[in-house]
Structures are given as C-alpha cells and as structure tokens.
C-alpha cells in the first residue's frame, strides 16, 4: 500500500506517495531523475549507488524508501555542488582518477564522507575509506592519489 514519505533531498524538502518498499535508488533515479546515482550490483556490494543518509554513506540499492521518511539524503548531484564536493571532482579530474566513470559518483561520495570525518587521511585510511566501492578500470592507485590531492586542496574546508 502506498504511503506518503517526506524527506530532505539535497537540501530541499520533498515528499512522494509510493510503495514504501521501493528502493531508495529507484526513487532517486526514476522519480527524482537523479541519474548520477548508478546501479552497479543491486546488492549493496559495489558502492556505485552510494548516497549520504543523515551524513553517513549508504548504498541506496538496499534501502527501502520507507526508511527514509523524515531523514536527509544527499546524492552526487547535491554533494558535487558543495564546496568540498567541487574540490573532489576537480581533484579526480586532475589526478587521473576517472576512466569509465561508472563507479566515480559513488567514489566521490566515499571520498567526501572520508574527508569530512578524517581531513588528513593516510594512504591506508583512504584505501579503507573506498573499500566499499568497486572500480574495475583504475586499479585504485590514482583514485587514492586524487583523494590525497583533494585533502590538500580542501584543507580548510575539511577541518571545519
């Protein structure tokens, strides 16, 4: 049975009447046309569909929309418009982090979550921070370097 679900999406209050068991991923992509959120595995393993739920990184393919009522969701569209998000996107471009790109919005979310909680991570902490995000193209090395670059460039923002 449909239910009205209200939540904050990329800083705006939204509501939708729908089956509360539908996946957050489908709501974001199909109803709100936020197609930067990618579907990679449908089982919470690859991280391509990562979003921030109340500031914490989650895989939107295994979250029913009913669980989001009254919560706050940030997608890549929202994150990449923030000051920190812009720094990560630029660092990814300059650092050679991007190849096919399908995992990258999720990687940007993971990097944003990591740097927001650990402004000055070591290589190992970065690797741990993106270990829930599968990339098949890059071998991760240049993603790690790019996140280091974003940490340096955004020093003041991350330490806030």
């Amino acid at each position: 049975m449909d239910a009205k679900i209200s939540f904050k999406l990329n800083g705006k209050n939204v509501s939708i009447t729908t089956d509360p068991l539908r996946r957050l991923l489908d709501i974001l992509r199909d109803d709100f046309k936020l197609t930067g959120v990618k579907e990679g595995c449908s089982e919470g393993e690859c991280g391509a569909c990562s979003v921030l739920l109340n500031g914490k990184i989650v895989t939107s393919c295994i979250i029913p929309i009913g669980a989001v009522d009254g919560q706050e969701v940030m997608t890549i569209e929202g994150v990449s418009a923030t000051e920190g998000g812009k720094i990560i996107v630029e660092a990814f471009a300059d650092g050679g982090a991007v190849q096919c790109g399908f995992c990258i919005p999720g990687m940007v979310i993971a990097a944003y979550y990591l740097l927001s909680n650990n402004p000055n991570p070591t290589d190992d902490e970065i690797r741990l921070g993106i270990s829930g995000n599968i990339c098949r193209c890059t071998g991760y090395d240049l993603i790690v370097e790019s996140i280091k670059l974003a940490a340096e460039r955004g020093e003041k923002i991350w330490k806030k």
């Binding site: 197609t35 569209e77 990449s80 998000g85 991007v98 790109g101 399908f102 940007v108």
Partner: peptide, 18 residues
C-alpha cells in the same frame, strides 16, 4: 585533464540506463 572526467565525476554523464 581527461575531457570526460568532470561530467563522469559529478554524475551528469549519461549512460544508457540514464
């Protein structure tokens, strides 16, 4: 800088499901 890097990073690049 790769020409496709920014659009792929900020989610605006469109793949067929998009």
């Amino acid at each position: 800088r790769r020409v496709d890097a920014v659009a792929k990073s900020n989610g605006t690049a469109k793949y067929v499901p998009d």
